[in-house]
Amino acid sequence: MSTTTDVNETKGRILRLLGEIAPEAEVTTLRPDVSFRDQFDLDSMDFLNFVVALHTEFHVEIPEADYPKYMTLNGCLAQLSAPRS
């Protein structure tokens, strides 16, 4: 079970990684259900860097087929807060 604190902490880490890739991104007004690419003008290179950053930060394997699941903040939270198998 993940608590609210856990979710907030995970969210903070995700936004920090995002900020490193798109420094000008206004993460405070980020809409959690809209894709990062649409909100922040990320290109495929940026997105790949983001996935790599998630991998390094959260120690998760993200196969290419799963990329779409990480396109939004809510998507990321769902993936990263899920119990590890």
């Binding site: 790949l48 394997e61 290419e64 087929a65």
Partner: peptide, 17 residues
């Protein structure tokens, strides 16, 4: 590409570009 990327860790994946 997707076949190759399946075998590659995330840090070594290729973009079609």
């Amino acid at each position: 590409l997707s076949e190759a990327n399946q075998r590659r860790p995330v840090t070594e994946r290729l973009l079609y570009g």
